[in-house]
Nucleic acid binder design. Sequence first.
DNA 1: TTATGGTGAATGCATTTGCATGTTTATATG
DNA 2: CATATAAACATGCAAATGCATTCACCATAA
Lengths: 175, 175
Amino acid sequence: MHLHVYMYANAFIVNVDATALNLYGAHMPKSVENLSDDDIAAWARLVRVSQTLLMQVETGLKAAGFPPLPWYDALLELKRAGAGGLRPFQLQERMLLAQYNLSRLVDRLVASGYVARLPSTEDGRGQILNITKEGRALLRRMWPTYRAEIQAHFAERLNKREIRDLGNILGKLRE
Amino acid sequence: MHLHVYMYANAFIVNVDATALNLYGAHMPKSVENLSDDDIAAWARLVRVSQTLLMQVETGLKAAGFPPLPWYDALLELKRAGAGGLRPFQLQERMLLAQYNLSRLVDRLVASGYVARLPSTEDGRGQILNITKEGRALLRRMWPTYRAEIQAHFAERLNKREIRDLGNILGKLRE
DNA sequence: TTATGGTGAATGCATTTGCATGTTTATATG
DNA sequence: CATATAAACATGCAAATGCATTCACCATAA
């Protein structure tokens, strides 16, 4: 989990061509404009803030003796999937994980008893993953700590309007 | 770089105590309230979107044959530091990296010829890091690709007002 | 001055990730 | 049907990260 950025210093490299001889008048589409200083600053801040928040939350979980966030995420997805469970490739899509990383994350979850790995009856290549009773219990035990971390480092610092605006803006960044 | 979250399903666990017997009237401080669904949704979206963006940008850099983002960040910090360079612990603070991770990142940068590592004259334990000519050249070569990635995946999807709002909201999340 | 504790940085070892490839089964095509 | 291609998952090996510890030097105070 590396991240972070700072590239103000390089902004001067930009802003030469299309902007100089503005072919578009006031309605130049942003796709043709260059990055503004504000764009760069917002990008840098997004990367840095999200990294910091993740570190803070993960630190809190670890301090309480819990496994890292991806375990929580995977178990929650499996819980939400209900009785039918999920195929590994489905879980992989939902978690944005590389195939080999998911394969090994599941290894660890199975080894720890939080997930059951069954052969798929419908596809001879495939498996079905189900959360176990212990997995559900882990989710329940982790949530108060996780929740407190989100509250302390994130939610508490923003008011309702800011939460709503942030959600809307981030929503535009999903493709 | 793992990340991502999904915990809607667990929101029901919360919302029992302080909210039920509201001691604070309409002005209950948020620090005592519980997390709302909107809080949780915004948190999940922040984590997921920032992870996706980072993956997209890093993928673009890698596809163009460039090293990963932390190399860029480190070199940019050193460039911005000017002739005096930076002590490793200073670079570490700016990059939010663990000490041992910085130590090894610098190893790689030095081995690749982008950074010079000199003994500090003022502190016998310390070093001075300076960007080399090759390091500056790498920054210049990487920036067009980096810039295009930020533009395509981030800046192009938001208008000026959204960029400003996002920056302001994220600013409140720095401590 | 010499103990003592603290700071800056490196490193051995275990865990995790990345990358390429392998294995098995499913699907498409002639 | 036979064969080729693709999908689902695993795995060997290299690189990166996390953790604990170590080493060297600095600062301070008896």
